[in-house]
Design a protein around this nucleic acid. Structure first.
Lengths: 186, 186
DNA sequence: ACCTGAACACCGTTCAAGT
DNA sequence: ACCTGAACACCGTTCAAGT
């Protein structure tokens, strides 16, 4: 006497992502997800071990999307320098357009696991790949760390509202990239 | 018929800070704070409007401590370049020594208010002051944004565990500072 | 095989009642 | 004036019972 499945795993993840996008990670309750897909909250535990596992699934999807965006931004350029600038700008645009999804990428509410680490690594791959081509495998790792640290730090402070003391924020972003990227070619 | 106060506001804040330092912001419950100071949870609401207000008070204290540390690190040097490097290193050391307090500085659980903004501004003052001396008031703001973005981004990614793919993390931090700071003097 | 209601432990918070 | 027990609404999660 099987009871037919009312939803798929993907539909649950999509619903959770929609809710996070609208109201933030902190506001995501299992109740809200259940309501959104038309099921009772306990049913979700047949599909995801707990709230953390559901968040992790949404997070992996976001990492995949970010990778695609970066790849798309880089594809427009043959110069590594221009490709890196384009990826940085595209990354910042994503964060501004979807601040709550950006928050999810670094949220402490998401438990660390191998699948998440892998997805995060893949999201960073377009940057690492361009840098490897440009400065060699040896110097690509520290270079990637420096560039991603600046971009992530800038974007997260900007979303946090730390840059509200006037001045031109876009210009500061460009200044940072201008100082960091060209000298990497030595 | 007054009931004598069992604790002071400062004792409550200190207890909350201790608990956050040990177990993180997410694990801080009003119950746990009440237990720690020997009072019942509802009593805390006579002193702080809600959990957010208590977190904000702890956060302001952390900002004050950071400001003191940065000032101390900068005081060792007359050169702005060296002072900035020293402040960056000291800031990173604080984050590594107290990761949960560092998390609190940027936590979405802490509601924004004028007092918090002011405390955050004061914490950044040693950096802004040195940069103003060095490159002038005009260029100090974007320069401060670039430097703090890199340092915060680097530290928060490091704490997040994003730099576990081998390589020399300290060296990457030095590389970033070396690329960013000296050229600011133009 | 999947879904559900009921229940548990734990939150933050309110408030009337105590001293 | 400050503290407290009791209560409320809301969590995440478990599980026996339904189909």
């Amino acid at each position: 006497m099987p009871a037919p499945a009312k939803v798929t795993d993907d539909e649950v993840v999509a619903a959770a992502r929609r809710l996070i996008e609208r109201h933030g990670v902190g506001a995501l309750s299992m109740q809200a997800v259940a309501d959104e897909v038309g099921v009772r909250a306990p049913s979700l535990y047949k599909r995801f071990a707990d709230r953390g596992a559901l968040l992790a699934a949404v997070q992996r999807g976001v990492f995949t999307d970010v990778e695609r965006r970066l790849e798309g931004a880089a594809a427009l350029h043959t110069s590594a320098k221009l490709a890196l600038g384009s990826m940085a700008t595209s990354y910042r645009a994503f964060a501004r357009a979807h601040p709550h999804l950006y928050e999810l990428m670094f949220s402490r509410d998401v438990p660390h696991d191998a699948a998440g680490d892998e997805a995060r690594r893949i999201a960073a791959r377009p940057i690492v790949a361009r840098l490897t081509d440009w400065v060699g495998a040896e110097r690509a790792l520290p270079a990637a760390r420096v560039v991603t640290a600046f971009v992530h730090g800038f974007v997260s402070m900007e979303l946090q509202g730390a840059f509200r003391l006037g001045g031109n924020v876009d210009e500061a972003f460009r200044l940072g990239l201008e100082l960091l990227v060209p000298p990497l070619g030595r």
